[in-house]
Structures are given as structure tokens and as C-alpha cells.
């Protein structure tokens, strides 16, 4: 059976699939720009007759505190987990010791566990140290459970730095710290970008920890969005505007730095 796809067919297929993939975004955008009286089930796909930003205003006033919470959460959590990941990755790639590979595998397992299996003790623990229902508590949580993935990414990244560079620095009399500061860190910019984008996206989008560890005042935006869509009073043009606002930060990062996002995606799944 000879299948030679004709160019026309190829493009037609690619464009059809693209439209299919974009249709949810189309619905979000179109619905969020409609005034309330145009929002009906029958005209879901229709263009708005006039562009109306009132649903954004309403969604923003509902979500603003939570958007701020998400920022307070995601920035420190991303920086801390990237730093720790770089430190671990450096040791596990350039200062291997007996058993370090086994330790690494033991660490990696933490990346795959269903977080439900640590949630009850985690909440008890956060209550004990009085970080339950607080953003610092959520930061701690994301830093700890982000360690396996950030370590994996940096370890694989550093594996590409030739060992001869480390040896040369050692002969020049540089020790562990100097090599990290003067050789590894300057070569890590891309690594930090990839890891930071990955962590930013994941922590921003995360829901399970957010919904169980925080209440009203410290809730990140995804929990607030879920509450917004679950309530009967809120019209769905506002829900769509809310979805757009909640998705925007990660979408912008993806559009601007998509290349690095894909590198992170590949780095997180293929080992060494």
C-alpha cells in the first residue's frame, strides 16, 4: 500500500487539525468578549456583535486577589526549587560518589507519586508548624515536591558540560565551590531558563495542593477559577474571561519562550 500524501491533503489535514485544536480558545475569547445579553447556548460559536470588556472587569475584580496570591507563590517557589535543583544536579553529575546513582533514583520516584499519598501527613505537618492555610506553606510544598524534577533537569543539563573543564579548573586549584561559581553557574543560564519556565508553569497551574492547603484568603488563582465556574450565579462569559485571565501568564510565557518550554518537557521525561 503506497501512501504518498499529496501536498494539498497534507496542508488541508494540518489546517483542519489546527482549527480543531484552536476551537476551545476561540470559544473562550469570543464568549469572554460578549455582553451578557448575547450569551446563550444556541449562539456559542457566533461572533459578538459588539466587543464588550465588562466580563473581564467582573472576572478581574473576582480573581485579582488570587492572581496576586499565585504570583507571591510562584516566584519564590520557582527560584528556590531551581537553586536547589542546580546544587543537586551539580553534585549528582560532577561529584558522583558510591551510591549517588541509587540516591538519584530514590529521589526521582518522588516526581511520580500521586500527591494524594502524602497529603494527609503534609497537612498535619503544616498545621503543626503553623504554615497551613498560608502562601509560605504552599511555597514550601512546591519547593520540596519540585526537587526531583529540577534535580533531574539540571543533572541532565550538567552532564553535557565536559568533565575536562572541571578537571582543568581543579588543576588550576579551584575547589568545589569555585568550580560551581566560576564554571558551572555561568554555563547554566539556559538550564535556569528551562527549569524556571517549567516550574513556573507547573506551580501556576497546580490545583490539588492549592485547594487542600489554602482557604479563602491565600487561595491561588486556579482554585478561585474553579469556584467561579462552580457557582450558579456567575454567567459563563465571566467564567470564560476568568479562564482567560488565569491562563494568560503561562500562555504568554509559552508564546514568548516556547522553545525552552519544549526543552523542559523533553528533559523531564527522557533520562540522561
Amino acid at each position: 500500500m503506497a501512501i504518498r500524501l499529496t501536498p494539498v491533503f497534507k496542508y488541508a489535514l494540518a489546517i483542519f487539525m489546527s482549527l480543531l485544536f484552536l476551537s476551545p480558545i476561540y470559544v473562550i475569547v469570543v464568549t469572554s468578549l460578549k455582553p451578557l445579553d448575547e450569551v446563550s447556548l444556541a449562539t456559542m460559536w457566533a461572533f459578538p456583535t459588539a466587543i464588550d470588556f465588562s466580563s473581564y472587569a467582573e472576572a478581574f475584580s473576582a480573581l485579582a486577589p488570587n492572581l496576586a496570591n499565585s504570583l507571591y507563590l510562584v516566584i519564590p517557589a520557582t527560584i528556590l526549587s531551581a537553586l536547589l535543583g542546580a546544587m543537586n544536579g551539580y553534585v549528582l553529575s560532577k561529584w558522583k560518589f558510591k551510591g549517588s546513582e541509587i540516591l538519584f533514583t530514590v529521589l526521582l520516584f518522588g516526581m511520580f507519586i500521586p500527591y494524594q499519598s502524602i497529603l494527609i501527613p503534609l497537612i498535619q505537618f503544616l498545621r503543626t508548624i503553623e504554615l497551613y492555610n498560608s502562601i509560605p506553606g504552599l511555597i514550601l510544598t512546591h519547593v520540596v515536591y519540585g526537587l526531583p524534577i529540577t534535580t533531574l533537569m539540571f543533572r541532565n543539563f550538567y552532564a553535557n558540560i565536559p568533565d575536562t573543564m572541571i578537571e582543568a579548573a581543579k588543576i588550576d586549584g579551584a575547589g568545589f565551590l569555585q568550580i560551581f561559581r566560576r564554571v558551572i553557574i555561568p554555563l547554566s543560564i539556559t538550564g535556569f531558563v528551562v527549569v524556571a519556565i517549567w516550574q513556573f508553569t507547573n506551580i501556576w497551574n497546580e490545583f490539588l495542593f492549592a485547594v487542600t492547603i489554602t482557604n479563602a484568603d491565600s487561595q491561588p488563582v486556579m482554585v478561585a477559577l474553579q469556584n467561579l465556574s462552580g457557582s450558579q450565579i456567575v454567567q459563563w462569559n465571566v467564567q470564560m474571561a476568568g479562564a482567560m485571565l488565569a491562563a494568560l501568564p503561562t500562555l504568554i510565557v509559552y508564546i514568548v519562550l516556547g522553545r525552552y518550554f519544549v526543552r523542559g518537557l523533553l528533559a523531564g521525561s527522557v533520562k540522561g
Binding site: A246, I255, L265
Partner: peptide, 22 residues
Amino acid sequence: RNIFLFPMALSFVVTGVVWQWL
């Protein structure tokens, strides 16, 4: 490629809220 990949950057919550209507 970017069109097929962008949903990866979204939250499952956003996906759920939108597909509930779709």
C-alpha cells in the same frame, strides 16, 4: 507545532472549565 503544543501550557482546571461547555 505551536498550535498543537499550546494546550500543554494550560492548567487542567482551565481545560476542564472550557470543555465542560464544549
